[in-house]
């Protein structure tokens, strides 16, 4: 295998593996910048992965809708399911002044339970869905795809990856260039000051949690219908926690979180294609698998340094309190 091929495989793998993390980490950023900690990203991804797989199977195979439409409906369902399941966390964190970490942990367990319970009910006791027939395929752009490395490496990716990059841009623009974004960040940094100048803290935080749920749900959806093509208990397995790490690694910034997610994606791509690239001849596969995580620790210790969470993150806001 020549160098160009290797580079192409690694670049393509990096983008594919990082897509679900980018989306969920983006959700985490929106959430925490508004002052709500969300350990529940994992659960929201689970429910997204579940909804996407089930709806894609139902619309495409049971209702016989066109094959190109079913995965899009699946991904839409993933987003809506993520938004819906983020609601209990929003109520607990915002109105009931609950400990947000505890509520997030509850959400993780709850989402995993609901998703597998319903799957067992729908698929006659089996712990997983059937294989999704109508899934996303990698995009083929005429002419551009023929450019070496750039075509098959960067451009020949799932539509959901394009969506993820687009959403990073939108999130950056909304959070830093619009009044809405300023209010969102103000609510997470100094809710009392925001309240004083007339920002509705409660409403902003609700919106942040729900948007975050939608993004994490989307991320989960890409796992089940673009990558593993089914849903089972191990489909998400830790991606939500990795997204959480990407959010902190990226210093609570949309572009930073994307960068961190791409970094995880790169390390995962190296591990996953170790066999193809011939790396396993030199390095035990366990080391390759542990590489993404080791590199992250080293990067955090050496380069990135002290992380500063939004000031009001995790603290319930009580009107009139000092």
């Amino acid at each position: 295998m020549n160098f160009t091929d290797m580079l192409t495989i690694i670049i393509n793998g990096t983008i594919i593996f990082s897509t679900p993390l980018i989306l969920a980490a983006l959700g985490g950023v929106v959430n925490e910048r508004a002052g709500i900690v969300n350990i529940g990203l994992e659960g929201l991804m689970i429910i997204g992965a579940f909804a996407a797989a089930v709806v894609a199977i139902w619309t495409g195979e049971t209702l016989g809708m066109p094959g190109w439409l079913a995965p899009w409906l699946g991904i839409l369902a993933a987003m809506l399911a993520g938004m819906l399941f983020s609601l209990p966390h929003a109520v607990a964190s915002i109105d009931l002044k609950a400990d947000q970490v505890v509520s997030g942990v509850a959400l993780n367990i709850f989402a995993g339970g609901v998703a597998l319970f319903v799957v067992k009910k729908l698929f006659e006791g089996a712990g997983q869905t059937t294989t999704v027939q109508n899934v996303f395929h990698k995009v083929n752009i005429p002419f551009l795809n023929d450019i070496p490395i750039i075509g098959p490496g960067f451009l020949q990716i799932y539509p959901t990856s394009y969506l993820a990059f687009l959403l990073v841009g939108i999130a950056y623009w909304v959070m830093y260039k619009t009044p809405f974004g300023l209010r969102l960040r103000a609510v997470g940094e100094h809710p009392r000051a925001a309240d004083t100048v007339g920002v509705n803290v409660r409403k902003m935080r609700y919106m942040a949690v729900i948007i975050s749920g939608g993004l994490a749900g989307l991320g989960g959806g890409t796992l089940s219908i673009a990558m593993s093509q089914s849903f089972q208990h191990s489909t998400v397995s830790g991606h939500g926690f990795m997204a959480l790490a990407a959010m902190i690694f990226g210093k609570w910034h949309p572009v930073g979180a994307m960068g961190a997610a791409l970094f995880f994606g790169l390390a995962t791509a190296l591990a996953a294609s170790g066999q193809v690239l011939g790396l396993t001849q030199y390095v035990p596969s366990e080391f390759l698998n542990a590489l993404p995580y080791l590199l992250t620790i080293l990067a955090l210790a050496g380069v990135v340094g002290r992380a500063q969470a939004p000031a009001a993150s995790g603290k319930p806001y009580e009107k009139g309190s000092r």
Binding site: G238, F241, M242, L244, A245, I248, F249, P284, E286, F287, N289, A290, P292, Y293, L294, T296, I297, L300, A301, V304, G305, R306, A307
Partner: peptide
């Protein structure tokens, strides 16, 4: 890492989980 370099313990402990899993398998 948290005490000396201020690295968030949530990330490092998540990462160390995977390192322990693969390392022990090895």
């Amino acid at each position: 890492l948290k005490a000396r370099l201020g690295v968030h313990e949530v990330i490092t402990t998540i990462m160390l989980n995977y390192v322990a899993l693969f390392g022990s398998n090895y």
